[in-house]
């Protein structure tokens, strides 16, 4: 983790207040023991009680209904975003984090439109763009309430679906749009760590996209179109190895820090025909990168790390609660669980 330290690490004194407050807030994050106790609990109710028993009182659920749990978790996410907004000396982090929810909403709405499934959608209300504005843009073609760039990405994704009839390709176009906006903002923000983090996230996503494309026999020429630029890894390298068999791919990344993830993830795919392990290891790798935030007294690393750690906790709670609800064994639930920040 120390290799991510750069010139600006621990030298941005304007983040002193935020970092100290984050240290206190980090006590509300889940650790491995709590996760283990939750998984070992006999049912969903007692699993959720473990959180309150460990003084994590913000996780107080009225009942074990899916809707009730989601409501509490969504409120916690909203509160986390509000805290980020409150403690950040500059507002850019707040906006940067919220784009993810706009694109999530856009994916949900576009899927509903192309599959002709109108009704209630699980939309986030914490994006930069109001969900009503997005909804009228998608369904009624009223683009006044969304940025021009968003309109272009939306139309591009729709066109892609009409051409290929593939939801996955449509989603990839939206992912491209997401990173386009993120990296455009990063250029303005000019924070080394943010660049490093998003580039790493993108490398892992690109490898994942390449694997999925290969599994679905998508042509190499198409892959070149859908891989997303901006990452550390050269896209050409991924395209060059595309014709080889997937198990041989990791060897081409031996000199990169991703080698062990790719190797283990692909080994799992060979055995189980599932990319689950690759996704899990990628998430853990990013979380590990963020652990630099624990050692930062003056820098935005702590804020980013706290936000992602909280998001990761919510993901783990959702995995456990769904696993318990549908009666999956502890071992199966454990397979899906992500690493913890604390």
């Amino acid at each position: 983790m120390l290799k991510y330290i750069n010139d600006t690490t621990n030298s941005q004194e304007e983040y002193g207040y935020a970092c100290a407050r984050i240290r206190e807030l980090e006590k509300g994050l889940l650790n491995k023991d709590i996760i283990k106790k939750m998984i070992d609990s006999p049912d969903l109710g007692s699993s959720l009680k473990v959180l309150v028993e460990n003084n994590l009182c913000e996780y107080t659920f009225e009942n074990t209904e899916t809707h009730s749990i989601n409501l509490v978790l969504d409120n916690i996410l909203k509160r986390t975003i509000d805290i980020v907004n409150e403690i950040s000396p500059y507002p850019y982090l707040f906006h940067l984090f919220k784009w993810k929810y706009d694109f999530h909403n856009l994916k949900v709405l576009l899927k509903a439109k192309v599959l002709n499934k109108r009704g209630l959608y699980p939309l986030y209300s914490i994006g930069n763009i109001s969900s009503n504005g997005l909804s009228s843009a998608v369904f009624e073609g009223k683009y006044q309430l969304i940025p021009v760039k968003f309109e272009r990405i939306l139309k591009q994704a729709e066109t892609e679906y009409l051409k290929s009839e593939s939801l996955q390709l449509m989603e990839i176009i939206l992912d491209q749009g997401y990173y386009e906006i993120i990296f455009e903002q990063l250029e303005e923000i000019n924070q080394v760590f943010l660049f490093y983090f998003y580039k790493t996230e993108l490398d892992l996503l690109n490898f994942n996209i390449a694997c999925r494309c290969k599994i679905r026999d998508i042509k190499k020429s198409k892959l070149a179109e859908i891989l997303i630029n901006y990452g550390h890894l050269s896209m050409q390298k991924v395209i060059d190895i595309y014709d080889n068999s997937i198990p041989s791919w990791p060897n081409n990344f031996q000199k990169t820090e991703y080698f062990s993830i790719f190797e283990e993830g692909i080994r799992y795919w060979v055995q189980e025909k599932s990319l689950l392990k690759l996704e899990q290891l990628s998430d853990d790798f990013l979380l590990n990168l963020l652990k630099i935030g624990k050692y930062t007294t003056f820098g935005l690393e702590s804020i980013i790390a706290y936000y992602y750690a909280k998001e990761n906790d919510l993901k783990n709670i959702r995995i456990i609660s769904n696993g318990k609800r549908y009666g999956f064994s502890d071992n199966i639930i454990q397979k899906y669980i992500r690493d913890t920040y604390v």
């Binding site: 004194e13 970092c19 100290a20 240290r23 206190e24």
Partner: peptide, 14 residues
Amino acid sequence: GIAGTSGAGVMTED
């Protein structure tokens, strides 16, 4: 001043 800023951050929560 530097220490005070951090102190304020901690005391906001506790």
